[in-house]
Design a binder for these strands. Structure first.
Lengths: 228, 228
DNA sequence: CATGAGCTATATGTATACATGAGCGACTGA
DNA sequence: TCAGTCGCTCATGTATACATATAGCTCATG
């Protein structure tokens, strides 16, 4: 069961020795977002400490931080569990993210540089190719890059940070609903429509289309969840 | 220098013995929001532990959590400081909050119940009276209640939580700029205009007016900051 | 006099130890 | 057989102890 965190093997080529508590936090964040740790699962401090080859102290700090992010729930003296989310709450989160994305697109339309616009088109093309190839994982990554590029194009760093944070909390759900090939194709088409509005400098239209795009994804997810 | 946290004397009539780390977190949150701890101020763990009559452990947990909220910056192995925000970042935060409030008002317009609408009008009247009386502190409180009532009227709990959290991070700045009597009067008038649009069920207009309202506040703040 | 290397003091990061309340099972009584 | 209480166990909450990197000082050198 021991799989102490291998340092830097993944991508952190920088030799910077990350704080133990941060590495634990990152690891848990990933596992929750990826759905490996299911909502409601109990997170025993000592157990996690053993798993990460650390003491309880950094584990506790990581858990406390995750609680602020909303990824876990802490019941004082009763332990920590992965945040259990009702379908209603998930839909609320989707609506919120949809609105945030919509407002990001509106601002981005008016503020983005030509280079940023070019980058978006590039990403859109890449996504289309990945979709045609049926490479869902590649599409996932490109899609994330696409949305982040939009956040950054608002030229409001704070807003972009908030948007990225919110988006991350939906990762665990988003992946499931994109398995449907037709949903993936529609997603591409919707991106295209958003870009068209951006090209015309029509922020309001782009915004409305983005909202619809996100809500479509939410509806697809709900349908998927109900099917089970 | 000792002022260990008196428990429950303030409002927590419930005899629930809050976790030490939570009480420290709340206390620090308040002090930062109130501007008692100035941006850039170093937060020494041992010092805080002494001040609160606790050990470093709960203090550390509190600081870690505040870092996630963005209220403090942690430089690994180099200590914790109250988040130092550039004027640019403050303006970005204001813009973000303005946009969030705007979208809340839009949703709220379409979704609020008659009772919620009535409550808003009530709060508006109270605020007007407080403004006439020149009671800035009372106005502060009523104003916060007004905005929170709007968040809740979106009937999207998640969104409301996010909005409240964001708003809280601007508290330290907001208070300074409302000292100007005329700004306070204009604020009341702007609230009235927003309510008028809500009454007509015109979410878009209400939204635009709210955005303008928040940005006016931001401009007033910037002017205030530049004056010093 | 300025600059930089080296040392020391100290605060942070982590581990371990102790205190306390929650959860659970056994036992008693009906 | 079942309900209720008692007491035990263990995880959490807090305190303390130890390891280590950073910051500031001293002192030597250009």
């Amino acid at each position: 069961m021991v799989d102490a965190i291998e340092d830097g093997a993944s991508e952190d080529t920088e030799g910077e020795p990350l704080l133990l508590s941060e590495r634990i936090r990152n690891a848990l964040t990933d596992e929750i977002a990826a759905g490996e740790l299911l909502p409601g699962a109990a997170l025993d401090e000592q157990q996690l400490a053993n798993r990460f080859g650390a003491s309880r102290t950094p584990v506790r700090e990581a858990l406390r931080q995750l609680a602020v992010s909303g990824l876990v729930d802490i019941r004082p003296r009763r332990g920590v569990v992965v945040a259990r989310m009702t379908p209603e709450r998930v839909m609320e989160m989707f609506e919120t993210v949809a609105e945030i994305e919509a407002l990001c697109v509106r601002l981005a339309t008016y503020r983005m540089t030509p280079a940023e616009r070019g980058r978006l088109l590039e990403l859109h093309d890449e996504a289309s190719r990945a979709a045609e190839a049926g490479d869902v994982d590649a599409y996932d990554g490109i899609n994330a890059a696409f949305h982040e590029a939009l956040y950054n194009a608002t030229h409001n760093e704070f807003l972009a940070e908030q948007a990225i944070g919110l988006r991350g909390r939906l990762n665990g759900f988003r992946r499931t609903q994109l398995r449907h090939k037709d949903r993936l194709d529609r997603s591409i088409a919707e991106h295209g429509a958003i870009l068209a509005a951006i090209a015309e400098g029509d922020g309001d239209t782009a915004s409305r289309r983005m909202r619809a795009h996100m809500l479509n994804a939410a509806i697809a997810l709900r349908r998927y969840l109900e099917d089970r």
